[in-house]
């Protein structure tokens, strides 16, 4: 579903002289005074040049933002209470100079140069709660090319982002049956060599110590399969946070796990899709 576009134009852009612009203006006034006192043409021209540049900069700074279209991108989900990424798409018909984006109360992100066409910008913000959340208001501003004016706009991105519960270490209910099977990875046992078997399997170290020729036997470590569910006796949200942490860890160890939550069950599996499905279930529970 494409999200609505926000176009930067005369109605949505605000512009005022920056503090540097004021100092610039004061400098021009000082130079004018010196020029009058000394009747120096060059100083007059420099003072007027400063004024001219200031006037021009007003249009150039405004131009730098005008015509940009903002759109929400497809953001991937993230954990609450951690900085997560929100994807914005900037569509500009012409190249732009340096501009700065940030969510209210968050660190700014600087774009040194905006090419013509679509540009994806990843902004970070820290959500407080799980579920579908909308980021704070977006602030887009620029002072280019001379820093004399500051031009800005505000926009509330409409598209919500899925926020998983915050990760917190803690107990979860975990049932994990173990089973063993033959494999090749772990050395397990020895048995006498039968004729025709490969030399690589012979325990040569033992032979050197004077033992008879013996063959090594191997086993694979057991593949654990776990079924996770919230730990009883904890506040609901806290139990979910523990689950989120456990799922994340199990996924990184590459283990197989399932999730049982309020009557919904996800069968044991592994992989990113499975992990995301489990976490989404937690986020919306």
């Amino acid at each position: 579903m494409p999200s609505p576009e926000f176009c930067l134009g005369l109605r949505t852009l605000y512009i005022i002289p920056s503090r540097f612009g004021m100092v610039w203006l004061a400098t021009a006034a000082l130079l004018l005074l010196v020029a009058i006192q000394t009747s120096s043409n060059s100083t007059f021209l420099i003072a007027f040049l400063l004024l001219g540049l200031m006037f021009l900069a007003m249009f150039l700074t405004h131009d730098n933002l005008q015509g940009i279209k903002l759109r929400c991108g497809e953001s991937s989900p993230g954990f609450a209470a951690e900085p997560i990424h929100y994807l914005l798409v900037l569509d500009s018909p012409t190249p732009r100079q340096r501009l700065q984006l940030r969510f209210q109360g968050q660190l700014p992100h600087q774009l040194d140069h905006l090419e013509a066409g679509e540009t994806r910008v990843v902004l970070s913000w820290t959500p407080g709660q799980r579920g579908w959340q909308v980021p704070p208001r977006l602030l887009l501003d620029c002072v280019a090319p001379l820093g004399l004016f500051i031009c800005w706009t505000r926009w509330q991105p409409p598209k919500p982002q899925l926020i998983w519960p915050a990760r917190r270490r803690g107990p979860v209910q975990d049932s994990s049956p173990h089973r063993l099977r033959d494999g090749l990875d772990e050395w397990n046992d020895l048995r006498p060599l039968r004729p025709g078997e490969r030399q690589a399997l012979v325990d040569w170290a033992g032979v050197a110590k004077g033992r008879p020729l013996q063959v090594k036997l191997f086993r694979d470590p057991g593949d654990a399969e776990r079924m996770l569910s919230p730990s009883a006796g904890l506040p609901w949200d806290e139990a979910l946070e523990h689950l989120a942490e456990r799922i994340w860890q199990l996924h990184h160890r590459g283990e197989r796990y399932g999730l049982k939550l309020r009557g919904r069950t996800l069968a044991p599996a592994s992989g990113i899709r499975h992990r995301d499905a489990c976490l989404a279930l937690l986020a919306l529970a």
């Binding site: 090749l184 030399q199 032979v207």
Partner: peptide, 22 residues
């Protein structure tokens, strides 16, 4: 194959009974 061991690939130190060396 599933029963191929690393040693099958890299080679092994074989005990030479005559020289009593690997």
């Amino acid at each position: 194959t599933s029963d191929l061991l690393p040693a099958d690939l890299t080679g092994i130190n074989v005990f030479d009974a005559r020289t009593a060396e690997f």
